[in-house]
Nucleic acid binder design. Sequence first.
RNA 1: CGGGGUGUAGCUCAGUAUGGUUAGAGUACCUGGUUUGGGACCAGGGGGCCGAAGGUUCGAGUCCUUUCACCCCGACCA
Length: 567
Amino acid sequence: MRRSKAFIPTTKEAPSDAQLASHIFLSRAGFVTQVASGLYNYLPLAKRVIRKIENIINEEMAKVGAQEVELSFVTPADLWAESGRIEKFGKELLRFKDRKNNLFVLGPTHEEMMVDLVRNRVTSYKNLPLNLYQIKTKFRDEARPRFGLMRGREFIMKDAYSFHASNEDLDREFDAMEAAYKKILTRLGLDFRVVEADSGAIGGSGSKELMVIADSGEDTIAVCSKCEYGANIEAAKRSARGNIPEAPEAEFNKFLTPNIKTIDELAEFFKVDAYYTVKCVAKRVVYADESEIVLFFVRGCDNLQEAKAHNATDALDIVDVTEEELAELGLVPGFIGPLDQDKAKHVIDSDLKNAAHMICGANEVDNHFVGVDMSVLSETAYFADIAEVNEGDICPDCDGVLTFTKGIEVGHIFKLGTTYSEALNAKFLDENGKAQPFIMGTYGMGVSRLVAAVVEQHHDDNGCIWTKETAPYIVNIMISNIKDEAQVALGESLYAQLQDANVDVMIDDRKERFGFKMKDAELIGFPYTVIIGKELVNGEVQIFDRKSTEKTAVKSDMIFTKVMELL
RNA sequence: CGGGGUGUAGCUCAGUAUGGUUAGAGUACCUGGUUUGGGACCAGGGGGCCGAAGGUUCGAGUCCUUUCACCCCGACCA
């Protein structure tokens, strides 16, 4: 492509609302423009990067036997009613009616559509397993889109759906897809981690997220310093604490604790480690048609993890409560303890199940219990893992220590089981001629988000640094002075040679000065720029390496060979 | 959906407290000239329904009302 004719509207200044490097540089370098909140135009450079990512995905999917399809973007609302998700998805589903007044939604994910496609077409175990995928625009009417391509309302997602006759076969496919996804991210040159994820509302027996490591990531992940264990903080587990602080020895007793309401105050008052205190977090748990106040108890040194609380209560939603609401139930904020269980539902963290020597609220003003042995509750109370792991906690798989890092979720793979096939009555006949619901897996990967993720990991102060696998153009030929006939002649012949060799090549043939064109090349981030300039009179040109920012002199008659060696 | 902020040239922003010629700057763009190794310089030029609608006024970018959009914090996010 000739730079002079290319539609690459670069700017010196970023849109004022851009905060992330990927948003700033993809905007400044002319890859994308914003249309409305969460909606972006992909310009030629972005389109080329997307196509490269898609090609890699297609290659890796072919290797594991997944077949590409493309389902319609506009999907009948009836299907969503059939699965029950038209309620669950809520306002994120963009709904509209056609001229005949039929209700449709723009597909935010395609489980229903894919099951509908397969049901009654695949009817025998002999035709399983089956893995179908597509790379397609999705639409989710997010309450708050942000960060450019990172969290748009309209975005490109690769979504695969597998159908199996047995759980063992689903397990095999799940592992194969995980391996394929790792391969894709590795080829894209990304530093990533596969982590345990919260399967949450979608259910099923397991899910993993593929996290690209980046400080700008929206997710917190806990990773082990020693082994491969990694988990989204929403799902992270831990081993029991090793270095347990010295226990405060005390007989069970009620103790006057005037105005001591917080864990910090309590620990200070009794001179004990917060480990031996019981923290109460009160929340209103919302179910399908009612709601109630639930008291969650964790150790004073821990915090409630809301995703876990969700799972422990089958909640649709969890919202904060006011002190007034608690008072109405006869609860005393600041002094709520787990020993009095008739005022509200309790969920107690499993780490407290047999905890002794504890200090907890006495459910009356200015009083706490000391010397509490939680095991007295083990018969009657509901225990669940609801505490958030802390940095420094012990890995659940080994004796390593958990550390936190930020990640961008670029992939999420689920073992769905029969949730959707049962809801949509999609069955096959097994060896015994018996109808069985398909056992399913689903595997998502955010393609447009990957574009942003690559830039998040590969940029410097001057712009993008594309890897060879992702670069819109790998080589940029920069003619320093367009009025110099020798420079133009060499540039043009190299351009022709590289094109013949099927190299993605750009030639900067604009009538601009050296510095201007260099800045532009750095902003866009071509891996290599061949500088044809003033050294040509001495028979030399240079290759500028975007990543190292080093320039290497090359004999002008060797330049084609040298470039080909680099690729 | 709660709380806050901003809408003026393609982009980044002044101007709005206190209404008053023809609405500005930088950048980008066009023409000519000089320049040509790190976002050049000089001269000339094009570009605006001041987010939209209504109102107050002799007069509104500026004041009032309504509304829309975008952004930020939070909630939300198979």
